[in-house]
Design a protein around this nucleic acid. Structure first.
Lengths: 342, 342
DNA sequence: CTGAAAGCGCTTACAG
DNA sequence: CTGAAAGCGCTTACAG
């Protein structure tokens, strides 16, 4: 049994001031045509009762909640929490509340948190889809609730999205390795159903083709959260007849894992094998062997997504669907170098 | 102008089914005493209209929003975002929405986000106070909105709180250093108005006193976000007549900063000087010199806070005010060792 | 400049 | 088993 909290209402102020609720409401909202004395009395009583408006009631009539929902893979992962912070800072300026939920890459949880946001009548959503199902996303669209995707996107479903150009980023990174003299470069890790992993593989292939090298098949062996799978794939890769001289990892978490495995095996990075990642996580520069990687503007992704979403919420549908691609930076560090001499 | 979204209501279902709104409502909530045929018709129409309940309206009458607000220093900092994730996972099981806001250590922003949560009528809040003012927190209490603090607390204001025992944790860490033979140990960094920093200094002093060593004055020189201040303090410390053989840093971010400065100066860690931190951030184990530190159960702090908060929201005031102290772990790594021989 | 009434989409007694 | 009415705390036309 919840404790009964007293909360002054507009009506309370009205009766104590001897005016109507209408007048109180208009005064509180700063609308004109209120007699100065009336206004002052109302304001005084409001303060005295410690009045705070009830946004619930307001939202119900306005059909606008001034709240936005973010569904993201994992709120505790800095790659995502920085996006959240970017969203948050922008929304804060507009007095809009932010609800967050982690999908943890699980389509059931994804569906469930999206449904709850829908029931809660958020004005819009920003989501990094799990990509395991389109149903939940489709439901948002069907209900005409403004939606901006981040990081990933669905092919053949034109929707607003903010992300980096994964294809091009990895292409540049691959060219950098090619220029160092590498020939046997492998794309390693990630899930093929996630567009980021797929796009990165595409970028790698493009670079290889441009350099007239034969691309190697991608090793979609999962993420750092599945270390056993990753390890098996890595061992297999190294045992193959033509061992790669460079490994492009799906992301930094994986690259850290891979690099440490290699070092544990007694190999040297980058002397025996170069390793590169994606994300530029905090520890990348601090590692025993600082990691070459691609820096994503995560905070900015969040901010841009929030900006676009608010435009949509306010009815501005210009350039729909809009794909905002943000710039990445190749951070060259010690984990990559020329291939070993033959 | 927001686009007009169509949304089926209970009334829509009622008219199309030829029953009253009451009956629809009771059916949808799974209450008994509904004729099976009526129920089925209602359920069918609801599905057909793609009905989703409007939690806003529900909350208004129930005086319960099934939402909770979290105010934390910085949602993008893993030390905090893991707390959020702990809160989130627990709330998810109870179908409660989570709103988050960063105070960024700024009392104005803190006040403002708390006020918005209050207007939004959250059922309760979890906050890591900035400690720069008590007013915002007091407002929550005054309105009888359930509140659980995390990490920090206000002296002389008994409130529910979940945190680690900073005093004891640092005491143990200091004893470990004393046992290694250190005599000149310094507590470094943080702000004196933050209870965590203060408590850590107290813990250090206690250990020193127990070992009959003279505690050194704390160097409250701020956090890693104020690198210049920190650096000046560090240089001054090292130039002093009795240079410390070990530095206990307020947190890991600071310890990383300090350690790298020392290495840059050509000093060896831990041969010339030992360095320890607090938090066990991800990179701590991966650094060039892996960092000795205190691991906090951040996820669990969030989870426990959420558990306690839900109990309070449900009217269970047992053991109020409750102070939940969670266990820490001293992670001994390479950044600490015996002091240099004289 | 101000008020009475209706309504947002639900739930809750109260009848029948 | 079902319905009519009132009400949650606001805002919005509409009068005056």
């Amino acid at each position: 049994m919840p404790l009964r909290k007293y909360r002054a209402t507009i009506k309370d102020i009205a009766t104590r001031t001897g005016v109507s609720a209408n007048t109180v409401s208009r005064t509180l909202r700063g609308l004109p045509h209120i007699h100065p004395e009336t206004r002052q009395r109302i304001l005084e009583v409001a303060k005295q009762l410690n009045y705070k408006r009830n946004l619930l009631a307001r939202s119900l009539v306005l059909k606008r909640t001034e709240s936005v929902g973010v569904v993201i893979t994992d709120t505790s992962n800095p790659n995502y929490s920085r996006i959240i912070r970017g969203v948050e800072d922008y929304l804060y300026q507009h007095n809009i509340n932010l609800m967050v939920s982690s999908s943890i890459g699980d389509e059931v949880r994804e569906r469930s948190v999206i449904d709850l946001f829908l029931e809660r009548a958020v004005d819009g959503m920003i989501v990094t889809p799990t990509m395991k199902s389109f149903a939940a996303i489709e439901e948002i669209v069907r209900r005409h609730v403004p939606l901006v995707l981040t990081n990933r996107y669905f092919k053949g479903h034109p929707m607003d999205a903010v992300r980096v150009d994964n294809v091009n980023s990895i292409k540049r990174l691959t060219h950098y390795l090619l220029d160092l003299g590498h020939e046997r470069i492998v794309y390693f890790g990630g899930h093929e159903y996630v567009t980021t992993a797929e796009d990165r593989y595409v970028g790698y292939r493009k670079a290889m083709q441009e350099a007239r090298r034969k691309p190697a098949p991608a090793v979609f062996c999962g993420t750092a959260r599945e270390p056993d799978k990753v390890n098996r794939a890595l061992v297999k890769l190294l045992r193959g007849k033509s061992r790669p001289t460079a490994i492009l990892c799906y992301n930094d978490d994986l690259a850290v894992e891979v690099m440490h495995r290699l070092l544990d095996m007694g190999l040297s990075v980058p002397e025996d094998i170069s390793v590169a990642g994606f994300d530029d996580i905090d520890m990348a520069a601090m590692l025993r062997v600082p990691l070459t990687t691609v820096a994503q503007p995560t905070y900015l992704i969040g901010r841009k997504a929030a900006e676009l979403l608010l435009r949509r919420i306010n009815g501005d549908m210009a350039d729909f669907p809009q794909q905002i691609l943000l710039e990445t930076n190749i951070m060259v560090r010690a984990s990559t170098g020329p291939p070993p001499a033959r």
